[in-house]
């Protein structure tokens, strides 16, 4: 599938924002979140900024961005519509939470739960957009939702760790929780890659042309395309570039996205005398590069059944 940069930026940026809101909400509910004007204000601006930038970016790939509001209407059947609604609805508890947390002495426990549930719900609806697409085996499987539900909070938690250290507002156990989330994220992605490497979709060129089931032994070889130049279907669904370097890019995603940031945060824990920002800022930046690479691969490696008509033997 063609990796549209606007959608990659949306899922990684908004993913980190919603992930940060979910971690904040849970901490607030447990009563472990300290109050400090500049820390609270900056954290909320960054979380909502990541979300807003991502949402605006996601409208860039639309043919008619000015009609984007119509996307809220078909929540009965469309996961994209549900995602749009959840994404916008999360602003309500998030803004209320932010106001109470920053300015009022009242409890944020209830708003924290509501905000965390909405943020995780948004990540779930995003994942379901891909999970529900049957023609794309790399997406239509049980590993996609766990990946999105872990990677959002993981990236959000690591950036929250940086902010808490920057403002000297330590959040209890956040460093070890970042390590747990990085390990969970790597495990989820590892399981995903193992699955997509060892399986393929149920269709074949024979089933695509109606000549027999994939196991029928009927061979269908494409000898002439309907057109001499790439058409929309091939450009959108037949993306090739990344597959050539997929293994190398996966290695980059694994080391930059999970392993090295984990080691850096662990080093910061083990060396309490040094300023943790020396380790955690590069860890967060490297993680973001790794996760963008991971997301790019999520699109670029995905194969669509339509390519069976253009000579692909598996999809």
């Amino acid at each position: 599938m063609h990796p549209a940069l606007s959608v990659i930026f949306f899922t990684t940026s908004s993913g980190a924002g919603y992930g940060m809101l979910s971690v904040l909400g849970i901490y607030a509910t447990l009563g472990y979140l300290s109050r400090s004007l500049w820390f609270s204000l900056t954290t909320m601006i960054i979380a909502l900024g990541l979300i807003t930038a991502g949402l605006l970016s996601s409208t860039l790939h639309l043919g008619h961005p000015e009609r984007a509001w119509r996307a809220f209407s078909q929540w009965r059947t469309s996961w994209l519509s549900r995602e749009g609604i959840m994404a916008v609805a999360t602003y309500i508890p998030a803004l209320l939470f932010g106001m109470v947390w920053i300015f009022l002495p009242a409890s944020t426990a209830v708003l924290g739960v509501v905000m965390a549930v909405c943020a995780l719900g948004t990540l779930y609806t995003t994942a379901m957009i891909y999970r529900s697409l049957k023609p794309i085996h790399h997406w239509h499987n049980q590993h996609v939702v766990p990946c999105y539900l872990v990677l959002g909070p993981m990236t959000g938690a690591v950036w929250l760790l940086v902010l808490s250290q920057l403002f000297a507002q330590p959040i209890p156990f956040l460093s070890p929780i970042c390590l747990v989330l990085l390990a969970a994220g790597l495990t989820a992605k590892w399981l995903y890659w193992s699955f997509v490497d060892s399986t393929s979709g149920p269709s074949s060129p024979a089933s695509a042309t109606g000549l027999g089931k994939p196991e029928s032994g009927v061979q269908v070889r494409s000898i002439e395309w309907p057109h001499t130049e790439a058409n929309y279907v091939m450009k959108e669904m037949g993306f090739q570039v990344a597959r050539k370097h997929a293994q190398r890019l996966r290695t980059i995603a694994i080391w930059a996205g999970f392993l090295i940031p984990g080691v850096m945060i662990e080093t910061a824990i083990l060396q309490p005398s040094t300023n943790p920002l020396i380790w955690c800022v590069p860890a967060a930046l490297l993680m973001s590069v790794g996760i963008i690479t991971e997301r790019w691969l999520f699109f670029a490696e995905a194969k669509h059944t339509v390519m069976l008509y253009y000579g692909a033997q598996k999809a």
């Binding site: 639309l62 043919g63 008619h64 009609r67 119509r70 697409l133 794309i136 279907v233 669904m237 669509h304």
Partner: peptide, 16 residues
Amino acid sequence: DLCIGCKLCSWACPYG
């Protein structure tokens, strides 16, 4: 007149 051009329908069609 209602289409926003998100292309998701083309992804959902197995037949292109």
